[in-house]
Each structure stands twice: as C-alpha cells, then as structure tokens.
Design a binder for these strands. Structure first.
Lengths: 122, 122
DNA sequence: GCATTTCGTTTACGTCCGTAATCGATGACA
DNA sequence: TGTCATCGATTACGGACGTAAACGAAATGC
C-alpha cells in the first residue's frame, strides 16, 4: 500500500529522527502544514495500519519509528516516475532537464563528478 | 488540477497522435488496460473538464486533441518528485540510483555522453 | 477520590479516482 | 417514419485521501 503525500511528510520527520512521540511529530509538522493535532494523529494511525511505522509503548504514550526505510520509499517513487515517463532510464530524465535549461552549472559539475567516479569504478 | 495516472494513459495516446476519435482511444487503451469503453469515455470527460484536452466536432462525433503539452506534464511531475525527494536537484537522484547499483553500463555511457555535450556548450 | 487533562482510537465527511452502467439525443436503416 | 445503433453526458459507487471532531481510558492535580 502506497504512502500518500501527507503521510510522507510525517515519515520525513521520523526519518530525520526517531523514535518520537506524537507530540513531537505534531510540533514538527502542524505549524508548517497548517494541520491540527487530530490530523497528525490520523496520519500516524494510517501509517501504522500500512505497517510503515511501528509504535512502542513508553509509559502512557507511544513512541513511533519508521519501519519503511527512506531509501526504499525514495527508490519506489523514483523508479515509478522513471518507468512511467522516461522508459525507466535515468539519462532521458537528465536530458529532459537539460533541454529545459533547468540544469545549473553546479548541477552539471555534480553530474560530471559523479560520472567520473563511476567510470573509475569500472 | 492534476492529471491522474489513469488519465495520463489517455493523454499518452493523444500525445502520440492527435486528433483522435473516442473510438480510436478506446482501441488504443481498452485492451491493454482492461478497460471498458465507458471507462475511457469517463476519462475523456474528466480531461475535458480539466482543460487538458479539447474536443472539436467532426460530424456526429468528436475528435480529441491535447491542450496540455507532454513536456509540461513531464516537467511538472519530474520537478515535483525532485523537489520532494532530492532537494530539487538532479545529481542526488542519479547518485541514488548509483548507490543502489541500478545504473547499467549503458546508463552510465548515456550520462557521460550527455555531460560531455553539456560541457561543450559551456 | 474526583475532576480535568492527555493520549490514542473511532467516526465523519467532502473530494478525487478507478471503474462502469445508464440515459438521452441523433443519425442510419429498413 | 419508426426502430435500432451510436455517441457523448450523466449518474453511480466503493475506496483512498485530506482534514478533523468526538469519544473513551488512563493519569494527574487537588
């Protein structure tokens, strides 16, 4: 079952640091997202049902931590997009941004460094 | 208003060739997707309401063509993902696939060619 | 001990989405 | 000219999502 956009914001908090109490997650998200605590509670419950997080009792409250790894989530999302739009390959995506002139000098330098490194491994 | 996954499959057909009659779009998608014609009709109507396509009368039927450009759609989707997951930059995405060893030799060669070309433009 | 606060759980509700059947108008055919 | 086939338009319906209030149990303050 997929993690929704709103849910992924909660995951982000937990990926950054965990375990956390609901209170902490509310503190980290509610203001920025304009959410009520109740909303965060709902999202936590849905994530529990999806087995994306786990809760362990800590006295009268629970502490939440991710079960789903950030890398796995990022990978699934990225691969989904690549498959749908770029024939599953990375280069066409880079080419797309290049054609749209959305690559800064810094982007290009980073890419060049990456590629050189990869070539070294070869 | 966002184009949903199912809708984007209809858009794909129209991006490949347009204008097309509903019948053609059904022919191009229904079998592969396991859709009834009714489903395709619904999707066409929703795309019309979203102004992603336009219909012009052709005798007793309509011919549909895209208003939304494929490049714009691809860009919005890609940028959304990059922004959400990779700090809006392309290199970290490439690095991610590299770390997961999901880059084939061919991918790397394509990327190297791309980068060299970009460097030439510099 | 009893009221109040504090958690998590349950329920709610409008919208979008996937999927499709049905309806209504119009053109074709007999 | 009346009936049948075609189209697009309307309506339907369950599930997910965003957003949140209400409820119930447990702890805490007095």
């Amino acid at each position: 079952m997929p993690i929704s956009d709103a849910e992924s914001i909660v995951m982000d908090v937990l990926w950054r640091s965990s375990p956390l109490a609901a209170e902490d997650i509310v503190a980290a998200t509610a203001a920025g997202q304009g959410w009520q605590e109740a909303t965060v509670k709902t999202l936590l419950n849905r994530l529990l049902r999806k087995k994306a997080i786990a809760a362990e009792r800590d006295g009268r409250r629970y502490l939440y931590r991710p079960l789903l790894k950030r890398g796995d989530y990022v990978h699934a999302a990225s691969k989904g997009l690549l498959d749908r739009l770029f024939d599953g390959r990375v280069a066409p995506l880079v080419a797309h941004f290049s054609e749209r002139r959305k690559l800064t000098k810094k982007d290009i330098a980073e890419l060049r460094a990456l590629i050189e490194e990869l070539d070294d491994d070869r």
